[in-house]
Amino acid sequence: MADKKTLTFLLMDAPFENARTTTALRLIDIAARRGYDINVFAYEGAVYLPLAAQAKHANAVHGTDAAEEDHPLPREWVEAVMQEAARNGGKLDWVNCGLCVDERGATESVAGVRRGSPADFWKMASTSDNVLVIPTR
């Protein structure tokens, strides 16, 4: 693809807390559908986004079981954008900040997520066409 781009996103928000997570993954999804190469550096609470242990749950207030509740899980969104990128000839390199992982015990992530350091973000930024940092407030 002649106009294939590489975009880097830095995410900081933990899942289930803010619309920024949804917007960030929407942006990544759009880039994935275009076949771009995408780098994601997950920092601080964002290392929980691909946490493998995320599970759907029942909701006693709604009177629904886990299947009926069909709770959205960010780890599934992460897997979906990775698959979307691959399907369109791109790749998504997701790096979780190792120190942030250790602090939070977020060691088990979905397949395709690797451990790194802020130096990886610097390398990503240096080799990308553009970078967007989405900070917490």
Partner: peptide
Amino acid sequence: PLSAVVDQMAAGCKALW
């Protein structure tokens, strides 16, 4: 659409959130 953001990023605009 949100794709306008990706368009601008791909075009090399300096992006600030």
